[in-house]
C-alpha cells in the first residue's frame, strides 16, 4: 500500500495550526486517534468488510429459507418460477453488472486525482441503479395485479401446487431487501458524487468512495445469486 502517509511527529499536538500537519492538501484531517492516514484507511476498510459479513449472514437467513422450502417443494418452486420474466431479470443483471463496472472506474479515477471523471462515472452508476429499480417497478406492478403476493395476500389461482405461494413470499422478501440496499447505495453514491464535485476526495484521501464501492459491489454480488435462484429454475 503506497498511500501518501501523513505521519505525525512524536511531539503532542499543541495548537490548532499544528493540526494541519495531519491534513492533506484538500483539507481532510486524519482523526487524532490514528497514527497515520494509511492506518485510518485500513481501519475503515476492515470495518466495511466486517459490515459486509453481517450483510451476507442477514441475506443468508433468506437464502437458507429458500433452500429449505425449495428442497421440500421442488415442483411448486419450478412452476412458480415460470411466472417471473427471465428477460427482465437478465436485463437487470446486465444493468447491475454495468453499474458495478462504472463504480469500480469511479474509484480508480478518484485514486488518480481525476475527480471530475470520477463524478461522471458515479452519475453513470446512479443511472444504471435507477434503470434497475424502474425494471423492478414494472415487475412488481405486474405481480401485484396478478395477485402473486406474499403469504396471506396471495390471490392468484393459476398455480397447481399450493406451496407455490411460498416462492412469492421469498421472492418479495429477497428482492425487496435487495432493492432497499440498491436505494441506500444510490443515496451513498450521490453523496460521493457531491464529494467529487466539491473536490473533497483526491489521490491522498479516497476512503469514502472506495468503501461505498465495496458496498455497491456486494449489492451486485447478492443479485448475481438471486437472479439464477429466482428466475432461472424452471
Amino acid at each position: 500500500m503506497s498511500l501518501n502517509q501523513i505521519t505525525i511527529a512524536a511531539e503532542p499536538v499543541q495548537s490548532a495550526s499544528e493540526v494541519h500537519l495531519r491534513n492533506d492538501r484538500k483539507g481532510h484531517v486524519v482523526p487524532h486517534h490514528f497514527e497515520t492516514a494509511t492506518q485510518a484507511y485500513e481501519a475503515s476498510k476492515l470495518g466495511v468488510w466486517l459490515f459486509l459479513v453481517t450483510e451476507i449472514l442477514m441475506f443468508g437467513g433468506l437464502f437458507v429459507a429458500y433452500i429449505v422450502f425449495r428442497a421440500l417443494n421442488p415442483q411448486a418452486f419450478a412452476e412458480a418460477s415460470h411466472h417471473l420474466d427471465k428477460v427482465m431479470g437478465a436485463i437487470n443483471t446486465v444493468v447491475l453488472i454495468a453499474s458495478s463496472f462504472t463504480m469500480a472506474m469511479a474509484v480508480n479515477e478518484t485514486r488518480h486525482d481525476r475527480v471530475k471523471r470520477a463524478s461522471y462515472f458515479l452519475l453513470a452508476t446512479l443511472f444504471f441503479a435507477s434503470v434497475f429499480l424502474v425494471i423492478k417497478y414494472f415487475e412488481y406492478t405486474h405481480k401485484i395485479h396478478a395477485g402473486l403476493l406474499p403469504a396471506g395476500y396471495f390471490t392468484y389461482e393459476g398455480l397447481s401446487h399450493e406451496k407455490g405461494k411460498l416462492f412469492f413470499s421469498l421472492y418479495f422478501l429477497m428482492t425487496g431487501l435487495h432493492g432497499s440496499h440498491v436505494l441506500v447505495g444510490m443515496g451513498l453514491i450521490f453523496w460521493m458524487f457531491l464529494k467529487c464535485r466539491f473536490k473533497s476526495l483526491s489521490s491522498t484521501y479516497f476512503t469514502p468512495v472506495e468503501m461505498v464501492g465495496i458496498f455497491w459491489h456486494l449489492v451486485d454480488l447478492i443479485w448475481i445469486y438471486l437472479f439464477p435462484l429466482l428466475y432461472l429454475i424452471g
Binding site: M1, E42, K45, L46, W49, L50, L52, V53, I56, L57, G60, G61, F63, V64, I67, S100, F101, M103, A104, G213, I214, H217, L218, D220, L221, I224
Partner: peptide, 30 residues
C-alpha cells in the same frame, strides 16, 4: 466481482480472511 472490483485480490490477509469467514459460516448455516 470480489477479487477485482472489490480489490480483494490485492487486499491484506486480514480482510480476505474476514470476508471468506462469512461464507464459511453461511455454509455451516445451510
Amino acid at each position: 466481482v470480489c477479487l477485482y472490483f472489490m480489490h480483494l485480490k490485492d487486499d491484506n490477509r486480514v480482510n480476505q480472511v474476514v470476508f471468506i469467514s462469512a461464507f464459511v459460516f453461511l455454509a455451516l448455516f445451510i
